[in-house]
Simulated assay, not measured.
Amino acid sequence: MANSASVNYIKVAHHFKFNYSEMKDIKPGQFVSSPVFYALGSEWVIECIPQYSNQELPGIYTCFRVKLKEYKTVNPTISLNLLKRDGKTYTLPIRYQQRNGTDLFRHGFSVLSNSLLEKDFVNDGSFELICSISNTDIPHNSCSLQVPRSFDLHSQIGQLMESTETADVTFHVENRSFMCHRIVLAARSPVFKAELFGNMAEATQKQIKIQDMAPEVFEAMLHFIYTDSFPSCDSKKSSTKMAQHLFVAADRYAIDGLKALCENKLCGRISLDTVAIILALALQHNSLRLKNACLYLLTEPGTLINWMLSDEYEDLVRSFPSIKAEIRDRVNTGPCDKKKKRKANSLLTQ
Score class of each variant (00 low, 15 high):
168 D>Y: 13
168 D>G: 12
168 D>T: 12
170 T>A: 05
171 F>V: 00
172 H>L: 07
173 V>D: 02
175 N>I: 04
175 N>T: 14
175 N>F: 10
175 N>Y: 03
176 R>P: 00
177 S>N: 13
178 F>N: 01
179 M>W: 05
179 M>A: 15
181 H>V: 07
182 R>H: 05
182 R>K: 15
183 I>N: 14
184 V>A: 13
186 A>P: 09
187 A>Y: 13
188 R>K: 13
189 S>H: 05
190 P>D: 04
191 V>N: 03
191 V>H: 09
193 K>A: 15
194 A>C: 05
195 E>S: 11
197 F>E: 04
198 G>V: 03
199 N>H: 10
200 M>E: 00
201 A>F: 01
202 E>F: 09
203 A>I: 06
206 K>A: 13
206 K>I: 07
206 K>R: 11
207 Q>V: 14
209 K>G: 02
209 K>I: 14
212 D>S: 14
212 D>N: 15
212 D>T: 13
213 M>D: 06
214 A>S: 10
215 P>F: 10
218 F>H: 08
218 F>C: 07
218 F>Q: 11
218 F>N: 02
219 E>G: 09
220 A>Q: 02
221 M>P: 14
221 M>A: 06
222 L>Y: 09
224 F>I: 07
225 I>V: 15
226 Y>T: 07
226 Y>S: 05
227 T>W: 12
227 T>G: 09
228 D>N: 14
231 P>D: 08
231 P>V: 11
232 S>R: 08
233 C>F: 00
233 C>M: 12
234 D>L: 10
234 D>M: 04
234 D>E: 14
237 K>N: 13
237 K>M: 08
238 S>E: 14
240 T>N: 04
240 T>A: 15
240 T>H: 05
241 K>I: 13
243 A>V: 07
243 A>I: 11
244 Q>P: 00
244 Q>W: 02
244 Q>K: 15
245 H>D: 15
246 L>F: 07
247 F>L: 10
247 F>R: 01
249 A>V: 03
250 A>E: 04
251 D>I: 05
252 R>P: 09
252 R>L: 12
252 R>G: 10
253 Y>S: 11
256 D>S: 15
256 D>L: 12
258 L>A: 08
258 L>H: 05
258 L>W: 03
260 A>E: 13
261 L>K: 09
262 C>G: 06
262 C>N: 00
262 C>P: 00
263 E>I: 11
263 E>K: 02
264 N>W: 04
264 N>R: 10
265 K>F: 00
265 K>L: 00
265 K>I: 01
265 K>A: 01
267 C>A: 04
267 C>E: 05
267 C>V: 01
268 G>Y: 08
269 R>Y: 05
269 R>G: 07
271 S>Q: 02
271 S>W: 03
273 D>F: 00
273 D>H: 08
